[in-house]
Design a protein around this nucleic acid. Sequence first.
DNA 1: TATTTATATTGCAATATTACGATATTGTTT
DNA 2: AAACAATATCGTAATATTGCAATATAAATA
Lengths: 110, 110
Amino acid sequence: MGTTKTANFTEEQNELATLAKAIGHPARIAIIQHLIKVNSCICGDIVNELPLAQPTVSQHLKELKNAGLIKGNFEGNAICYCLDENGFSKIKDFFQIVNSYLENKKNQCC
Amino acid sequence: MGTTKTANFTEEQNELATLAKAIGHPARIAIIQHLIKVNSCICGDIVNELPLAQPTVSQHLKELKNAGLIKGNFEGNAICYCLDENGFSKIKDFFQIVNSYLENKKNQCC
DNA sequence: TATTTATATTGCAATATTACGATATTGTTT
DNA sequence: AAACAATATCGTAATATTGCAATATAAATA
């Protein structure tokens, strides 16, 4: 079908999946890495940095914004985008649980 | 197009994106959570646990396995699946960089 | 060896994602 | 106000993903 059966999963599962999915594209990884690297944020900058056309970059920025992974506000006639701790803090907890499980797990069957 | 332009991104960016994408589905989040919860792993168990048909679960397991997030080997006539630290350790570093950036960032423009 | 049990694969329909050209919008500058 | 610059939206083509019924495979057991 192509349609994820979100209704049959918990809200937490859907939320985590949405966040991970939003991160799951090389262009969006590159955007996140670039925002960290330059420690500031003007969109035109990002368009020049990525090997994609401006509308495509704009679309990726929108997806990151919808997921709560970046936020942006007008700064003159450019837009200032930067990382949004909201989204990242939600997924952070999930990975902490996974990692502490993997560190402590001794009785592995595999 | 629907085709990600992987050739134009770094190997690291593509690898991180692949991992995040594999995690980015509620069924696959549920599988990971379940493996942690029961601290062991038989696939039939997972099929019963998820609101999806057996072939669909099998497909999701395959995707997690391809990404290096779970591993499985035969255990009698069932298969023993469990978390694979390989995949998780790769994405762990990425989130650590993001989180330490977000914690230290003071001069925010947003 | 026939049957059962557990899991994988195939094939396909429905929907989602990616990418970009063309165009619209919004704010700035002259 | 007109022109410009930066970004968003629309429309659309190509491809990917999701889900499942049907079927195949592989190991265990009767």
